[in-house]
Computed example of a mutant assay.
Amino acid sequence: MFNEKIEIIYEDEDFIVLNKPAGVLTIPDRFSKSLPNLYGILTEKYGRIFVVHRLDKETSGVICFAKNEEAHSDLSEKFEEHDVNKVYLALITGHLRNKEGRIDIPLSENPKIPGTMRVDYDAGKRSITEYKVLEEFENYSLVEARPLTGRMHQIRVHFKAIGHPLAIDSVYGNKNEIFLSEIKKKYKAKEDEPEKPLMSRLTLHALKLGFFHFRKKEYIEFEAKLPRDFESLLKQLRKYSIRNVN
């Protein structure tokens, strides 16, 4: 039975588009095959499924799988040729001097820490992320990020490289969670009850995905609504932490 907690945004004979919850893997874990993953869930329902692209475990949002070899080949080529429109929402630390811009910094895998990336001007592959600041808070900024290339952890490493890592990023940043007490100045803790975090995972959400459908012969685009934890954090920031620029 398909997991009812995973929203199906779109489905046809070629593709299935989902809103991936944070904490769910795209593909099976190399060391623990029993961990929940979209590939396994979809394979149970459809028998055969094709992975086109991936989202980090702690990233939520729109992700597309192919249902046959023809669809897989076509969309994989579009990803390879950067013919796919990808839009993310990221909450980053601090404030950017330029409210719109492009980060053009080469990246490569970090041999010292397997499974991570690093800035590499000597042997790294060219990596480009365009961004636009949407909202500013006292200590954070909400940005729209458009990766024009598809390197692993690209958005995370790029914003760290320019001095503004994601608000929560246990690998490339320095926080694992955000509490209301950090945002609300007159916060009063409840007696004998530990404070629960507003959000305790990567502050990154894949908002939109668009591409030209090879069979329908038209451009299609999908949007995944923000999950509750991200919405809750933004709501509290808007209420208690709007940036005063005076």
Rank of each mutant, 00 (worst) to 15 (best):
S76M: 11
P114N: 06
K132V: 04
N68Y: 10
G115Y: 14
I8S: 00
Y10P: 01
T59E: 03
D169N: 04
F179I: 00
K20D: 14
Y240I: 04
E69Q: 12
I6D: 10
R238C: 02
R102P: 05
G61I: 06
E44D: 09
R156W: 02
A206K: 03
L38Q: 10
T43F: 09
L35Y: 10
L35I: 12
A123L: 12
K67N: 14
E130F: 11
E177P: 06
P197F: 05
I6T: 07
P21K: 08
L207F: 11
P36Y: 03
N176V: 03
H153K: 01
V24A: 01
Y121N: 15
K20L: 14
D12S: 02
I242Q: 13
P197L: 11
P111I: 06
K239E: 13
Y39C: 06
L75P: 09
L75F: 09
K67C: 11
I162Q: 06
L42Y: 06
I6H: 10
V143Q: 15
Y39A: 11
E81Q: 15
E218F: 09
K175E: 13
K125G: 05
I183R: 13
F65A: 07
S127V: 08
E11W: 08
S241A: 15
R228G: 00
I155F: 04
I105G: 08
V157W: 01
F65D: 14
D83F: 06
L204R: 14
L75T: 12
G94K: 11
L234K: 02
L25R: 07
S76K: 11
F211M: 06
K196Q: 04
N246A: 10
H153N: 12
I41P: 07
L134D: 07
N246D: 15
T93P: 01
K208G: 01
L18E: 04
E135R: 04
K112S: 08
Y131G: 06
E77K: 15
L89S: 10
